[in-house]
Design a protein around this nucleic acid. Sequence first.
RNA 1: GCGGGUGUGGCGGAAUUGGUAGACGCGCCGGAUUCAAAAUCCGGUUUCCUCGGAAGUGUCGGUUCGAGUCCGACCACCCGCACCA
Length: 853
Amino acid sequence: MSRYNVKETESKWQAVWEERHCFDVEEDSSKEKYYVLEMFPYPSGRIHMGHVRNYTLGDLVARFRRAQGYNVLHPMGWDAFGLPAENAAKENNVHPAKWTHANIATMRDQLKSMGLSYDWRREIATCDPDYYKHEQKMFLDFLDAGLVYRKESWVNWDPVENTVLANEQVIDGKGWRSGAEVEKRKLAQWFLKITAYADELLSAIEELDRWPERVRIMQHNWIGRSEGAHIAFDIIGRDKPLDVYTTRPDTIFGASFMAISANHPLAQELAADNPELSDFIGQCNRMATSEAAIETAEKLGCDTGLKCAHPVIEGETLPIYVANFVLMDYGTGAIFGCPAHDQRDLDFARKYGLPVTPVVCPPDTDPSTFEIGNEAFVGDGNIINSEFLNGLSVPDAKSKIIAHFEGRGMGEKQVNFRLRDWGVSRQRYWGCPIPVVHCDDCGIVPVPAEDLPVVLPEDIDINVAGNPLDKHPTWKNVDCPKCGKAARRETDTFDTFFESSWYFARFCAPVENEAFTRSAADYWLPVDQYIGGIEHAVLHLLYSRFFTRALKECGYLDLEEPFAGLQTQGMICHETYKSAAGKWLLPTDVSTGETGELVDSTGAKVTRGRSEKMSKSKKNVVDPEEIIQTYGADTARLFMLSDSPPDRDLDWTDSGIEGAWRYVNRLWRLISEPPFAPADKGASRPADVAGSALDVERMVHKTVATVTADLERFHFNKAVARVRELSNAVETLKETDPGAAWVLRFASETLAILAGPLMPHLAEEMWSALGHDALIADTAWPEADESMLVEDTITVAVQVNGKLRGTLEIAKDADKETVEQSALMLDNVQSFIAGKEVRKVIVVPNKIVNVVI
RNA sequence: GCGGGUGUGGCGGAAUUGGUAGACGCGCCGGAUUCAAAAUCCGGUUUCCUCGGAAGUGUCGGUUCGAGUCCGACCACCCGCACCA
């Protein structure tokens, strides 16, 4: 029995594809284009299973669309700037650039061993000055277009390392390396005006009909358009009012306090001569900056002693607190608290003994007995305890109270967005330098276009406290481009989302002097199918959508939406293992002992944990390279595509990969050792095809039709199942049935073509073994013969009172009476209806008969 | 906390518009082949059962001739929350 020589075969076909430049593409206006893009990887060192899944999905689409006759662009590159390179630099004393390039080299080899159909000529690395110089130019153009501004913003500050920490570097409020209590600090930073496009980014979601609904909902919620009111509250004893944004002006009669952010200018001002308040603000500034941390922290406040006049209740006042749950970045950084109808306000009021007055009464509830317990009522209802608003619904009350305030000049209707402007400044070395100069006389001066790129210095000490660029002895010293006096470079670098916001355009034409050529971008964009992780559902995708619009405004492109189709993929999971000592163990260190239980290399018992997302920290990882070495890329691909649909999590199991491996061999055997001799290549269909041969021939057509539909709809697991069914059926072919030899060849060739996008190396090998000189990669996708799909008899289910009691083989489209009569004649049906009155018979043509008694 | 998602045999998952629940695979059981094993092939495999059936798609309730699918309430787990990418 010949076993499939996977290593030899796979490298052979990879070499052939490369020699023949199969996947190099150019613009060709005579062909319909199709741009397939997988989210490019961060070069972290080695590829992981998530990459294998992502790139398998993309490669399948690319090869499938190519076979369908599209001009397919399928590129690959590296999202090469980022924090891990700096961490590696500190830990291993290796330069971030060197580390990154070494990783790219390793990962490129690994990807090539997967046989992916990329046009490698278009490869890019974002840390390359040839890449980032273009985005420096874009930034300057955005600056000209008024899409960039500078403002103070809060960051996590590690007082020991003198550096800004990412949220992931803050653990329980402490710096991950220093262990020092993290503070918030204000820094002047660069922002992109994504909010200028808030309305458009929101409304255009409607048209993204090939995006997953959940991603659209997430983006919708992220932008968070709300309609509410801006209200000015008079502060007693002060001239300047306190401005508040609220989405619930209807609850104004239930207000019992005011709350402002610790970062609100008023709080800052009052803290100057109020030590207690100053302490409290300090405490707020030690809280983590993430929204999750703020929302889940205990609601705390500090009374400022100031009071506002209640805007609608004469003579009543509202105490002003500084509170830790009020965000300076949302609305005006100040709220009025209505505890009865907002959970956070209620928690706060209960803690500080503030009044809780319900002003919205739930439907069908008696207002006189309605009380608020520990849960705020946030639903619709009738307004109560609110003078001129009483009896109105929530929406009606909103309109009326806004009109009331507008009439008195105290407030107005306002639309607000949750979306904040995009802060792009990072105090890090391994990123794209922001191309501006700070001059004492001229202020901020853009670096002239002809002086770009501003290149990162190579001689850098990554171990200094603070921003390495800022601490570099010479790099930042530069003459002001405007006045020529000594000035300083901006030492912040871009957020790495900056690079990934336009790389899809760069792939269209990675030329020297431009970000991309306009004609290439016009031809290839938008990306027809984008594929990547759900974790990018909001930020990366939203930034790219914004960036595309900004590029359009600056004349780079004529496009709003970069990604016409989006497919998100689930995570790869694996069982976890723990030793008796409670340490995580690699799957490769765990085996089954003699008694059938799991043991480690020393024979000690191992505890099996549930399947979780593969992660280095839990060691539940399987190295793709080992899998590809052992079983080959096709087997790894097949496993990735079988069973789980792309958007669901996938459990990696040894038995699963073994099963895929068995199928690869089985399919190969079907060709290399056919059950009997197939007809000659190119033989025409004999007139007489019957018995098992006819059944299989029909099935080939049916499989082509369903697999094509499944691949178009990303139902890859179903496509694999259909292909398996066909190969199972081929094994039932009887040599003696008329036309069997011809059907065997027809089915074998079709299997090879259908396997093309799934297992490309094996498909080529099958095709070659079937006597073909051309490549599967250059072979057109088959079309099913409609006439072969029509069945003449149908199985109809027969139910009595909704329970299955039998089935009926009957001519397709038989008339209702015939079907009904035949169904009632069934023995089992007869026995169930015996002695009872048939009240009704429901006949659904070609589907079901339900007898109701 | 807010937002999003998922839940079907021992396991991963199938099931156009409400119409035969469990396709395909994994695992397991039995058999063939083999000196033996591996590999391979064939058959079986939701559960219970008095072998006629009965129950069954996270839980509870509803709509319907008929619900995995539609509606309401709930439970569990997972993901995101703006400096990880």
